[in-house]
Design a protein around this nucleic acid. Sequence first.
DNA 1: AATGTTATATAACAATTGTTTTTTAAAAAT
DNA 2: ATTTTTAAAAAACAATTGTTATATAACATT
Lengths: 194, 194
Amino acid sequence: MAPKTIFSSEDVIQAAFSLVKESGFKDFTARRIAEKLGSSTAPVYSYFKSMDELKREVLLRAEHLALEYTKRPYTRSIFLNMGTGLVMFAQENKELFKALILESPEAKQLLEEFADILYAELDKDELLSLLPAKNRREILIRMGMFTHGLASLISAGIYKDLSKKEIINIMYNMGKDVIDVALIKAGIKKNFTA
Amino acid sequence: MAPKTIFSSEDVIQAAFSLVKESGFKDFTARRIAEKLGSSTAPVYSYFKSMDELKREVLLRAEHLALEYTKRPYTRSIFLNMGTGLVMFAQENKELFKALILESPEAKQLLEEFADILYAELDKDELLSLLPAKNRREILIRMGMFTHGLASLISAGIYKDLSKKEIINIMYNMGKDVIDVALIKAGIKKNFTA
DNA sequence: AATGTTATATAACAATTGTTTTTTAAAAAT
DNA sequence: ATTTTTAAAAAACAATTGTTATATAACATT
């Protein structure tokens, strides 16, 4: 029989993932991964037909991690949690966020899934369900742009890092105002609440 | 004397720029640039000590182009023009926008310059100058995030392309609401105007 | 026409990459 | 102990890259 397996496919993926998390796909090479793993390049090619296949796997993991962030219970509002989660993910995984936006063809689909979940969420809200679909759609688009902008600027190092509390605050205040504007303009609400 | 110069440094830069504009820095190699130019790689190395030096030049040109976009008179409001310009630039130069955000250390500085110009602009406005500095700053941050988010999503192909008119409209409506909220919350304005 | 200068082309270099081939040796079955 | 299987290592390949060295030939001056 054969010698014991030393490096599992999970080991390979984790080494690759941690490499990309640190520095994006700049140094994503079979030899660098092997080095990180303390092996030759053989285990990499034993589990993956090509580097491209491994790359896809890494991007998939990054997507799952992002998704996981958006599901964490930062607050009681799912709406707020998704936005906060995306920004937290971008901040704590700057390279992954950039790689995901730039290299993942599924990024578009992922964000559309977010939008669908949120749209259903708005539907459940007592006040917001009174809004015409068009207005609810606009709230979503506005908050989507804002959230993505914040996440993107932080991941690029252009905007400074924030504490979790600060992120929640920024997202909450913006969300509140965007929603209030929509409600007031639709005649559902009269003025701003403190 | 020497033979006539066939390829100027401007030719080299333009070939490099057009290459990056088409497909980012993925195929930014001396040989691809020479091919585009219809020359050997010699002219490239005669004007630039290294590919890195040429890369910096290309990024500089991209910055200038972005700046030029933000100075165009889309509307009568400088505020609106800068936002619209950035989104237009990102949409019409997707690869350049991404490269700029990702590879240019000066991107941060560039956006800070934008912010300064806009801050001075808010200062000149009759109503907005009544706002406390903190509130004006918040308007800027909110619009900055929103604008960058829209630009970034379009450049990544995640959000659909828009006509100039649509971009102006989106930016105008968002800006108006963000400003109105600030004015109302500060007690300077009573309610939304149509 | 011969010469010197040098823009451009060509060729060559070493380094790096993805990938394949070959070697080595560990482990179980005989 | 020998054999078989096959993880893993090591080596080798071709392609591509940045960069440098060399060759070619155009042009103005003599």
